[in-house]
Design a protein around this nucleic acid. Structure first.
Lengths: 342, 342
DNA sequence: TAATTTTATGCAATCGGTTGCATTAGAATT
DNA sequence: AATTCTAATGCAACCGATTGCATAAAATTA
């Protein structure tokens, strides 16, 4: 049984004033004298008063809770984004509800429903890999709940902030780097093209190729859910092609790691016989032998920005005058052993 | 601006009955006729009614929210425990609030305060590595909020459920395995001994040694926070000893991965010149070359159990008749290349 | 000193459900 | 037909904080 807690009425009784005065004093209302405010604060502290958010939320129609929906929390990129979001949120007195879609569209839809019912004040989301339809987010918007997308964003809904990195450029940097190292047949393990970011990464890959006059060959490209199983299977497929590709640019890091594992299993020397570059970093990227070259994304920064934009929108009186820009951050190429031919 | 929503009063008006009847009908109260219930449900659906949890929570003093506090969400063990907790929680209509202590005692204390203020219905926690004092958890208990510990548990507070694995046995299995493979000088990178699980793992290690008549040598043991930096530094220290250890049993997986990385950097062949075994699995454990032998923990199962026990305690009228057992699950040795001499 | 303004506080309704107790209508019993 | 019982529903208080409006007290002005 949860204990009864100290309420503003207890403070009011003790000081023989009304509860409205206590409420106003605690909220630092201008119409309350300094003397009363001090007294109220003192007694509040004395009794160990803690505001009941349920009660104030009921009347102000706010929960001071925002929610994050990500595919999975155990990927480094999302974990650091979450860390960034949490920092900004807690600074502003918000609690953060973390939800995992496990990259399943159906779960994402259900989660949004739950969040609407629970009246969260805002939602930050990165789409499940198979989400191609966005009515659930529109439903949230219609319920008056602001939505901010990051990384895997939805362009179909225009009145939302979007925080992305320059995926095109990142992929271009990665591919160019491989070409500069002298690799000639550069394959690509990409994500399903339903997600914009993976289309961008494919486009950047193409640009990287063409800049070095390397032909784009659809046969060297594979699309998948970017998990380890896919990575292993598709690496095998690619490496059985004749002639064999001499490098792979992977659209995420898990597939890059599985590509590396596959190569080593089959005595294919990395980077001599196969150059590998990944996208976004895992904690272990630098620990693997050879360490994996990768595109670093400012994940925590993205999280912070997403949270800031969301709070901005929550605080705005009406969302009519919102300037819904898409914010694009820069990526960085981190060269490690898996792609360096010297 | 959040939109006004349909309330039970809207349903009551439409049907020209009282709000209490609507409330009871929706809660399937025995005293309401089937006919009325059906009508209420129909209209509720028609109008798109969604119960306001703030309002009902205010009066029932429940939030239908439970919270998890873990050191970090981006470790595989915690991520799967969270997944387990979420499954059980959502089946029972609870929302899960995930918090990260980032392995810092101070943050853990703050988080608990926030949770108490937010009136969560229960807390599931795995301690920060430097938590040696538990008043914050007692405070939660005193506020009437049940606490369940898992993995890194607190034995000082007796009236809580605790879900653990047999750390002693896991460590014993790991060490015995190394000894069986013929390794003679087995070192140990352990966690700070403030945490019970790391004391257990050390004890299991000792038993494994003694069973094979290998002497326990304090000089071969190091204690740390078990992050990658510590792992790298301490591996270096250990490998510079003369005579050099020929195997390392690491108390977690991150340190095992860094030990492997260090060895490969310095041309020390694994497993021939150095056997490595870790504790608990990361997604990449099996992808590394050589793949790392490890102790597998039933992490999702632990999460499920923790959630079940917590809900049990929440539902119990008074906590007097709770049977606070410590539940111990089994670990399993997964032998991979990093320790197999053949 | 009376009238007016300013400042500080209280009253009471409200948010949206829940619940103990009272009430009504209808069925069952005598 | 009168009485008792039961099933179904309504009344109204309540959870704890917020807030528009009223009012009292103090300060200022005429």
């Amino acid at each position: 049984m949860k204990k009864k807690k100290v309420s503003i009425y207890d403070i009011a009784n003790r000081l023989e004033i009304s509860s409205s005065t206590v409420s106003r004093a605690l909220n630092d209302h201008a119409r309350i004298s300094e003397k009363t405010k001090l007294a109220v604060r003192r007694v509040a502290k004395e009794l160990g008063f803690e505001k009941n958010h349920l009660a104030s939320g009921l009347i102000t129609n706010k929960s001071f809770t925002i929610s994050i929906i990500v595919p999975a929390v155990n990927r480094n990129f999302f974990a650091s984004a979450i860390t960034g979001i949490e920092k900004v949120a807690s600074e502003n007195g918000y609690t953060v509800l973390i939800c995992q879609s496990h990259d399943q569209y159906e779960r994402e839809v259900k989660l949004i429903d739950t969040l609407i019912i629970n009246r969260v004040d805002g939602i930050i989301a990165s789409l499940a890999i198979n989400t191609e339809e966005f009515d659930h987010f529109r439903k949230a918007k219609n319920a008056g709940i602001p939505v901010v997308f990051f990384d895997r964003v939805c362009h179909e809904i225009e009145d939302t902030f979007k925080i992305v990195v320059n995926d095109f450029n990142g992929a271009y940097l990665a591919t160019r780097h491989l070409a500069e190292q002298g690799f000639k047949r550069i394959a690509h393990i990409g994500g399903y093209q339903s997600q914009n970011i993976f289309r961008e990464r494919l486009a950047g890959y193409k640009k990287g190729l063409s800049e070095f006059n390397l032909p784009f060959d659809e046969g060297l490209v594979r699309y998948c859910a970017l998990n380890t199983d896919d990575g292993t299977k598709l690496t095998e497929e690619l490496l059985q092609l004749k002639p064999r590709p001499d490098a792979i640019f992977c659209a995420n890091n898990l597939t890059a790691i599985s590509a590396l594992a596959y190569a080593m299993d089959h005595n294919i020397k990395v980077p001599e016989a196969l150059g590998i570059v990944g996208f976004s970093e895992e904690t272990v990227s630098s620990l693997l032998k050879p360490a994996i070259t990768s595109i670093r994304q400012p994940s925590e920064q993205m999280g912070k920005l997403a949270a800031q934009k969301l709070l901005e929108e929550i605080d705005a009186e009406s969302s009519d005058n919102m300037d819904y820009t898409e914010i694009e951050l820069r990526t960085e190429l981190i060269v490690r052993a898996s792609s360096k031919l010297e």
